[in-house]
């Protein structure tokens, strides 16, 4: 659905641009290609890293370590797993719901969901290419710490 909207928007903009000015449109496409080719090596590295991470960390491994009684350690592990993996939301949310029904704790799941979205360890090579080492590491580091706070908050609200 997300992807469909993306294509519809890109297609419409491209068409409007083409009707208005062909030269500018072909320049835009050349720039798009240059930007893509520039980042391709990092993208390929990320692709390989993600595949290994997701092969090792599946739902059954995850549910083992982040149960209701896993405590602070479980929250940390959940946050780490979320930070390393790169799963699209439409896969992650049902998986998180299934984990929750199978005895995972709310705080653990909230930590997992939060770091999953905010922190990207495997996409770091890509992020560094755009933002430099320091900014990328700082963003991921603070986002990780913040995710722990967010998890406790979400757990508290859900438990009210």
């Amino acid at each position: 659905m997300d992807t469909f909207i993306l294509y519809a928007v890109a297609g419409l903009c491209l068409l409007a641009s083409f009707l208005k000015n062909r030269g500018k449109t072909s320049l835009a496409l050349r720039k798009a290609y240059k930007a893509f080719e520039g980042i391709l090596p990092q993208l390929l590295v990320v692709l390989l890293l993600v595949s290994v991470a997701l092969a090792v960390l599946d739902t059954s491994t995850v549910s083992l370590v982040i149960g209701k009684d896993s405590g602070v350690f479980g929250v940390l592990i959940a946050a780490l797993i979320g930070a390393i993996t790169l799963i699209p939301g439409f896969v992650a949310f049902p998986a998180a719901a299934a984990l929750l029904h199978n005895g995972a704790g709310t705080v653990q799941i909230a930590a997992f969901v939060s770091t999953l979205m905010m922190v990207g360890v495997v996409t770091l090579p890509l992020e560094m290419q755009y933002f430099g080492k320091r900014t990328a590491l700082l963003r991921n580091g603070t986002a990780f710490l913040f995710s722990l706070v967010a998890a406790v908050f979400v757990g508290w609200v859900v438990g009210l």
Binding site: L6, A10, G11, C13, S17, T25, A28, L29, A32, Y33
Partner: peptide, 11 residues
């Protein structure tokens, strides 16, 4: 589509 959009945005 993302790269096409950003190319258009730039131009």
């Amino acid at each position: 589509p993302i790269f096409i959009l950003l190319g258009l945005l730039d131009v």
